[in-house]
Computed example of a mutant assay.
Amino acid sequence: MPDIPPTAPAEAEIAALRAEIDAIDDAMHDLLMRRSAVVARLAGSRAKGSGSPVRPGREAAVLRRLLARHAGPLPRARVVRIWREVFMASIAIQGEFSVAVHAPNPQSGHARLAREHFGPIAAIRVHPTPARALAALSGGEVSVAVLPAPAETDGEEAAWWAHLDVPRLQVVARLPFVTDPGGPGALVVGPVPADASGEDRTLLLVEAEPSAARGRIAQALADAGLPAAALLVTRAGEETLALAEIEGFLHPEDARLAALPWARRTILGAYAVPVVGDTP
């Protein structure tokens, strides 16, 4: 009887594991095809209507549900990345999709955020100013716009959020969805209302009196039952503009808005609160 090389058991084990992976790949592919067929039926459903297929709140809720049940060596950020591709493939089935992003160049941080969130296949068009990116969205040239997260250092041109054409255009998502403390942040603006994910923050813009201090604005919000998780205050000419991030999904008819002492109070949209990535 010929001698069996000592590596044979290891090779047999590797072959068996690869066969198991192949079977799993086939099962995953079957499910992807099945999911795509359901998406195609949804796209053709009269009940759905002809609106945009972009539903960031629904996507965030799905990701949170999957992450809550996730276990094993596959990193949480990779799970999000895989499902982001699944989401974008589903959107592509329902129609063309493209992104306008304000960034100095295609390699900048905000352009990278757009590519990572919407996938490398999505058409991404870089614009030199927020106004140009919003004009492309408003004109129907793109599906969404990715703009820098507001900051108190924003000049008049950079403070796109102070002039957003709501309710026609609204903030619908925040990037990245997996928190990255050291990276840039961005907001996604779309031609659809924001949809609730179950854990959200609403962006509320108020125009206060010219001399209003941050403490006065924060207190007025709290007194109305709308404490701000974050508050940005800037002066625009004789105006004092405050952008508050309110915990929860705030509706325009919410009675607490009427309790605010300012006539101009505008909901700019909402976004799903980002999830925590993998702990070191």
Rank of each mutant, 00 (worst) to 15 (best):
G49Y: 01
E85Y: 00
V99C: 03
P104A: 10
P53L: 01
A77W: 02
Q94Y: 09
R58V: 14
R65G: 13
S45H: 05
R55N: 12
R76F: 03
I91Y: 12
W83H: 10
A71P: 03
V101Y: 02
A60G: 07
S90W: 01
E59I: 07
G72F: 01
V54A: 14
R55C: 08
V99R: 10
S98R: 09
G57W: 02
Q94W: 09
R46C: 13
A100R: 09
R76Q: 07
S45W: 08
G95T: 07
A71C: 10
E85N: 05
R58C: 15
A47R: 12
E96Q: 11
V54M: 11
S90R: 04
G44M: 12
G95K: 03
S98V: 09
R84D: 11
E96F: 11
A60W: 03
V54H: 11
G72T: 07
A60F: 03
R34K: 13
G72N: 06
R55I: 07
I91L: 13
V99E: 06
P104R: 10
P53A: 01
L42W: 11
G95D: 07
S50T: 15
P53N: 02
F87I: 03
L42G: 11
E96M: 11
R78V: 01
R81K: 08
R76D: 05
P56E: 08
A100S: 04
R34V: 14
V86A: 00
L74Q: 07
R65L: 12
G51F: 04
G49Q: 11
A43H: 06
V99T: 04
A100G: 01
L67T: 01
S36I: 12
L66N: 05
Q94I: 08
E85M: 02
P75E: 02
R34I: 14
S45R: 05
P73C: 04
S50F: 11
E59V: 14
A71Y: 09
A71N: 14
V38D: 12
L66A: 05
G95C: 03
S90G: 06
F87M: 09
V54K: 09
R65I: 11
A89M: 05
P104C: 05
P53E: 02
V79G: 00
E59A: 13
A37Q: 13
A61N: 03
A43Q: 03
R55T: 14
L63D: 10
I91T: 11
V80I: 04
W83C: 01
W83R: 03
H102L: 10
R84F: 01
G57M: 03
S50N: 15
S98W: 09
V39P: 00
L42P: 03
V79F: 00
A68L: 05
M88T: 13
G51C: 06
V62K: 08
E59S: 12
A40S: 13
E59P: 05
R35F: 07
P73M: 11
R69A: 15
S52I: 01
V79Y: 00
A61H: 09
R35I: 08
R46V: 14
R34W: 14
R58A: 13
R35M: 12
V62E: 14
R69F: 08
M88Y: 08
I91M: 12
A37G: 08
L63F: 04
E85K: 03
R65A: 14
L66V: 06
A47Y: 12
L67N: 03
A43K: 06
G51P: 01
R65F: 07
P56A: 02
L42F: 12
K48R: 15
K48F: 15
